[in-house]
Every structure is written in C-alpha cells, then in structure tokens.
Design a protein around this nucleic acid. Sequence first.
DNA 1: CGCCCCGTTGAACTTCTTCAATACGCGTGG
DNA 2: CCACGCGTATTGAAGAAGTTCAACGGGGCG
Lengths: 243, 243
Amino acid sequence: MTALQSPFARKLGAFVALSEEELSALDSLYGRRKAFPAGRDMVHQGQTDQSAYILASGWVCSYKLLSGGSRQIVDFQIPGDFLGLRSVLFRTSDHNVEPVTRVEASEVLAKDLLETFSKTPRLATAVLWAASRDEAMVVEHLVGIGRRNAKERMAHFLLELGARLKLVGLGSTSGYACPLSQYLLADAMGLSAIHVNRVLRELREEGLVTFQHGQVEFDDLDGLVLLADFDKTYLDHDGPLLK
Amino acid sequence: MTALQSPFARKLGAFVALSEEELSALDSLYGRRKAFPAGRDMVHQGQTDQSAYILASGWVCSYKLLSGGSRQIVDFQIPGDFLGLRSVLFRTSDHNVEPVTRVEASEVLAKDLLETFSKTPRLATAVLWAASRDEAMVVEHLVGIGRRNAKERMAHFLLELGARLKLVGLGSTSGYACPLSQYLLADAMGLSAIHVNRVLRELREEGLVTFQHGQVEFDDLDGLVLLADFDKTYLDHDGPLLK
DNA sequence: CGCCCCGTTGAACTTCTTCAATACGCGTGG
DNA sequence: CCACGCGTATTGAAGAAGTTCAACGGGGCG
C-alpha cells in the first residue's frame, strides 16, 4: 500500500498524514476509470453538470480562448491533481480542458465526494488544502505574467512544475520528464513560441536549466531559484505538514 | 428594507432572490464594524487566524510583492465584497490587503458564517456563487494580462469594474466614481504608470471612455465592449438568476 | 510656503512579436 | 522502402509595444 500509492494519495499525504482507514476511504472515492486521447477537449466552456476527475496518468491544461484567436493557458494538471472540483460545487465551467497527452482519469461523483468528506473530515481538509494550493498557484501565475520578465517567468514555471511533480513522485531535484511543447509553454506564459525558444536557449547557455527532448534538467538549482525569486519552502517539504 | 439595502445584500440579491427571512439572517451575520485608514495594510502575507470582512464602504486591493520591489495587484474589493472568505476557511493569507481609501467593514466570525449557512442554505449558495465569481475574475485577469494588449486590457478592466459597481448600486451604464490612481492601475494591469497614462489618453481621444478626476465616463459603451472583447452578459443582468 | 503625491509629456531604449526561412523526426501512403 | 506532409524546434532580422529616464505642472495639506 505504502509502496504503490496512487499519485493522489501521495500528494495528500504530503499535506496530512493519512491513516490506513483514511487511505481506504480514499480508494472508495475513485469511480469509473476513463481514458482521453491527446488534443481533444475533455471539457468545453459553458458545459454544465459534469463530473470531477482525479488524474491517474497524463497531463492536461485548462485554458480560455479570446475572440482574436489567441489563447491563455491558466494552468496544467498533472497526475494526482483534482480536476473540476469547483465545477462540481458550482456547476459552471468557464474554461476549456484539453489533454496534453493521452490521459487516464478516475471519475468522482459529487455524491461520493461529499459522503467521504463527512465520514473522514481529515480527508476533506487535505483535499481543500490541495484546492487552496491550486488557487494560490493561479495567483502566483498572475503575478508572474504581470511582473516578471520572460526568463524569470520561465524559470519560476519550471521550478513550480518540478515541485509539484516531486510531490507525486514524478520528479526529483535534478529534473523531470515534461511533455509540453514550446507552443503550450508560450500560451501558458503569455509569450510567443519563438520567444520561448530563445529564453530556453539562454537558460541553457547560462547553465541554469536544460529543457530538451521532453526532459527538464536542473543544472544549477540554486541559481535558478535565485533568478526566479522562487519560494523554495514548498519545494522541499518531505514530511506532512499536519501529523 | 428594500430601499436601503446594504451593498452586500444587494449583490447577493442579483444572484438569488432573497426572502425577508433570508435578508434578516444576513443582518445577523454582520459583526463589529471597523474602520481602516487608507494606505496602511489590513492584512499581511503569512498572517494567520484572521477574520473575514464584508466591505461597507471604501475600496481595498489585494496584492503580492516581489523581491525586486515591484508589486502585482491581484484584485480590488469594492463595497459589498467579501474579504478573506478563503483565509477563514483555510487560515492562510498568501497576500497583502491594503485599503485604497478609508474603509469601513463589518467583521464576520467564522462561527457565525457557518451557522448562518446551515440555517439558510440559499444564502450559502449565494455567497459561494459570489466567491466563485471572484475566482473567475482572477482567471479573467490572468487571461487579460497574458493575452490582451494594454488598451484592450484597460478597457476590459474599466468595464468589469463598472459591471461590479452597478451590481451594488455604485455605478450605471454611463459611468462611476473611481478612486484608483494611475499607479494603482499600473500595478493591477502589469504596466508602468506612464503607459497607463498614455493608454487612458488614447481611449479618451478615441471617444471610448474618459477617466479623469476620479470619474469614469463611458463615452461609447458598445465600442468599448467591442474593443475589450468583454462578455456583456454579466454586465446586464438586472434580475436575479435564481428565483 | 513648501512638500509630496499625482498626472502629463517627450525621447531613448529594451523587450518581445512578427515575418520568413530552414531543419528535424515521425508516421502514412504510394 | 522512400517520398511527402505535418507538427515541432531553431535562427535571423525588422518592427511594434511598452519601459525607463527626465522634466514639469497642479492641488492639497501641514
């Protein structure tokens, strides 16, 4: 159980130390497992009454389109992330969701979710904690686009992604596998794809990070953290915050 | 009662038609009334265990500081807005809150809030609806900074603010009073104050909107909406969404 | 009166975008 | 098996958008 935890359990475990009982309650949450091919939207803007999902494998992005045709990616979800928590609670999806890779996700029914929460409140705390972190990340993203230049922004993004992946066992302080194209990066960072390319080259040439062939390698983690003004505290928590 | 509603009641009423009973339950929510002078932070980053507030008068902004000294304003709160709902539920404030003007706000204790929610669920729905709208606004803000140029961004911002103010009776389709300096606008839009000045001049000279002497006047609302790619639907709802 | 904050404008400069062209890998159909 | 097309990565050069530096005017307040 401990060795083969799901990414979701692993992530929650970083926030709240979970008992065997709570872990099994978590298992009962998982509904039907569904697969989605890369590229075709899972969720459309304005769609109502949809399920939530827990990502088991693969990456997705949440984005909004503008009338001019450009798009802004609001955030990425990686394995272990909860998808559509808000839209279950409020039944309003104001953005689209597109799988970046092939994706496997477990459906979570609103009923089961609420039931589990009332039976194991610590689990609810953990999930809401995770949701709160997601919100904070959107704010941090906003700050980055508004007040960081392209290089700092990219550095911060790669570090944050690394921290999140490490939390679910998909990365380490030395690097991680990353399926994002430069076009996706551009839409996330509010840049052009060409500039993304240049920025990545500069970061590489300065010996800070190498992002090539779907692999991010931190060549100088401290230097990168410094450049990005990255808050290292939540990069490094190995034990649960709440015993 | 109906004539002299608080801004908060007025806003919730736009989402959910409230009965007399629900309105009086709302009244019981309001705790001690506090006043804050302009300029001195009400909430600091990292502060724990603080109250929530409902703004009665005045404007505040929520912002984050970067190590370089620049800051990014995440959003503004106006009369009727709930302040710190999240930090009551999660007890983590990851940003600062500064009054833009002198502010009067009613304290809301977590206990009273939850109690009221369980007694009058429709009120809970209304509050969460409002919270959800706030979240959506942060996302829209992110999109604007990432993918709209300065003029479109400013236009969108002024329209959104107008829509929010109209909801609480502090504005109309022709304009509203706005205490924000060009420096505050700059920090909100991710621009320099100088460029904000230029953009405002251009918008004025093109006959779209005039922002001078603390007053925003929509000179050509349709033209502005067009320029900003503004979703007019929630600008215009005069009646409650939920009877 | 003088100070400070805010608004305003000009001019030089940086950052990022756009346009254009080339290269590479991979899968498909001939 | 190879040619072709498509999506992605890469680079150069010109141009647009926004920043920075510098200076000045006006109004409110101690």
